[in-house]
Design a binder for these strands. Structure first.
Lengths: 351, 351
DNA sequence: TTTAGCACTCGGGGAATATGAGTGCTAAAC
DNA sequence: GTTTAGCACTCATATTCCCCGAGTGCTAAA
């Protein structure tokens, strides 16, 4: 059921003015903005049609029309112009990302912050290992009589360490031995497999040695969970309050709680795995209840070979999709490029 | 100018009911709650006195009275009962902290979250090295042909590492040599001293070797700044919206922006160094403009020997001081105890 | 098929009004 | 001297009412 060209132009005019003004759009306004040489009455007829077909809604009789979710969807899919970024903006984005000395998390955080400032909406970020992560190697370093550093490197080249205190000292050969056991028995295993192996090992190993092994392996398991775990971060939540649909606190509160780290609840649709790069979820298309009146535009990017990240913008269904998608896709591309080139494998540690 | 006992009881009743109700307190309410057997007229006279002395304010003629900053101050200093925590609460706090396998940052974050839930106010946390931080030792580990791990341990026993990629491979002796240079020339130096030393070294060192040294030293400098840098984190910002004084968005917005990481501006009064353990700043006693109508209750605690942390609660001047201080001091004590015992020196790395 | 015209609807804004809690003051009572 | 009752006054908030105007749907003419 294809729409006539005129209907499309009318719909587009309505979506765009509603996005700009946040107020229902009347036939008069459409007549001026759509650039059609027809009277308001004609427009009204067309608008009535569009309402019947489900692309528009009227908040109450005798106000203008506002786009429905389906209306936004059509707009996003067919009607929307792709916006160009200004040179200042691309510059800003590049600056935010090009701090190559900085580590992964901080770059991602920074990206979220800048994207939020550029789009005037809150932004969330997420990063997680794509698939099964394992430990590639263990290293142990004696630093004091009663403490050594365990260094764990995962197959996605992430390196983490921990200072481990032990009651009695450890001789060099002992340390070598420990290292050998770890590297031979626990390399290439997933978190769960490590747990199993550790359990089995307990029975036929000297208690003292086992305890040491367990300390390091537990740390390694922690590292692996940390890798798989999706770190959800947000930036610019206060931007929410700038938009009229969240002026009432009753509306703003649940969404804000959802976005801040306050709730322990499950997060956004973890579309980390979908092949698509850009994803737009409009209002009811969202699963979570807190997002029912909210749209999410998100893009994913690769971090090295083994990780994938998502960065997304959250706002009212009346979101400036053209603006947001333009900035977002540039961001995602830049991130992929930078994590591909500058950091051949994600370097890491700290904070 | 000591207040009569009766005045104190009236003031206390006013502060406590105002804290509970957020509405100006009239003479009638005071008569009932203060437990004095006098009429409302007498109370009114006393309240007039208290107003003259600056402990109370009237938002407009003919509303009840509300406490002034001085009134809160007096209440906090002399009138307030120390609250007891319920067993459930102490249990909750202990649970939050006793995840000993977790690392520093995560424990602090978790503490902030729980404190926020227990107090119904937003919470901020901060941690920083107390004084001059230096590197205690360097370790280098070859992991691939063209990459090695640099491990840096500071004198506060914080260990960080980084995977460093190099164009050409490095032989074992070369690595030993590099390690020797680093450990002999850069141990015990502050960030600034390192920079100087590095500059001086540039002239009389082979370019290739110098570049390697610089890579590692730059990383070490980053680690040191990271240590000194005060990591400001918040939890439960949305609790703000629950309190009537922030019902209007105009009021909530600036404070929220201040608390979220949205602004790059300087943070809270960095009273990391003051000897006092607990600190209450009421309204105008705060320096920052965003906090003028806001009270901050904060407590500091030790993290090992070389770091100190602050955890604080932010809320309207009409804050439930008794409740907050009780929980906060328990938290701070627990944190000190746990970082003192369980983690003799703050172990570290990751996230 | 488009347009002009018109009666109708309904939300928002503003003024006027009512309400009621709380005050300050005075004069009487203790 | 201190406490109390009484009373007129103030002022923020809630309620009501009314008006206005934008926008609609429908009809009849172009």
């Amino acid at each position: 059921m294809a729409l006539s060209d005129r209907k499309k132009r009318i719909l587009r005019a309505i979506v765009e003015t509603y996005i700009a003004t946040a107020e229902p759009v009347g036939s008069k306004a459409v007549a001026q903005l759509a650039g059609l040489d027809v009277s308001t009455a004609t427009i009204r007829n067309e608008m009535a049609d569009l309402t019947d077909q489900g692309y528009l809604e009227q908040p109450h009789t005798s106000a203008g029309r506002i786009p429905s979710a389906a209306g936004y969807r059509l707009y996003v899919n067919e009607l929307m112009d792709r916006q160009q970024l200004t040179i200042q903006e691309t510059q800003r984005i590049n600056d935010a990302l090009n701090l190559k000395m900085e580590e992964l998390d901080r770059v991602i955080d920074r990206a979220g912050k800048v994207l939020s400032q550029l789009s005037d909406y809150p932004v969330f970020t997420m990063a997680a290992a794509k698939e099964r992560v394992t430990v590639k190697r263990f290293d142990l370093l004696m630093v004091e009589e009663n403490a050594f550093i365990a260094v764990v490197m995962t197959d996605s080249s992430v390196v983490k360490n921990k200072l481990i205190h032990i009651p009695d000292g450890l001789s060099d050969p002992q340390l070598q031995m420990l290292s050998a056991v770890l590297n031979s028995s626990f390399v290439g295993l997933s978190r769960e497999e490590m747990e199993d192996t550790l359990d089995k090992m307990e029975t036929h190993t000297a208690p003292g040695a086992f305890q040491l092994i367990a300390l390091v392996v537990e740390f390694a398991m922690e590292v692996l969970s940390g890798q798989r775990e999706q770190k959800f971060r947000t930036a610019g939540i206060t931007h929410l309050l700038e938009h009229p649909e969240y002026r009432s606190l009753d509306k703003a509160k649940p969404l804000m709680a959802y976005l801040s780290e306050d709730t322990d609840e499950p997060r956004l649709p973890a579309t980390l795995d979908t092949g698509k790069n850009m994803n737009i979820l409009i209002g009811p298309e969202n699963v979570s209840d807190a997002l029912k009146d909210t749209s999410v535009v998100m893009a994913s990017y690769d971090i090295g070979d083994n990780m994938r990240g998502v960065i997304g913008v959250v706002g009212p269904t009346r979101m400036d999709y053209a603006k947001v998608t333009a900035r977002l896709s540039y961001f995602a591309d830049s991130l992929t490029r930078m994590f591909g080139k500058e950091l051949p494998a994600p370097e890491d540690s700290e904070e």
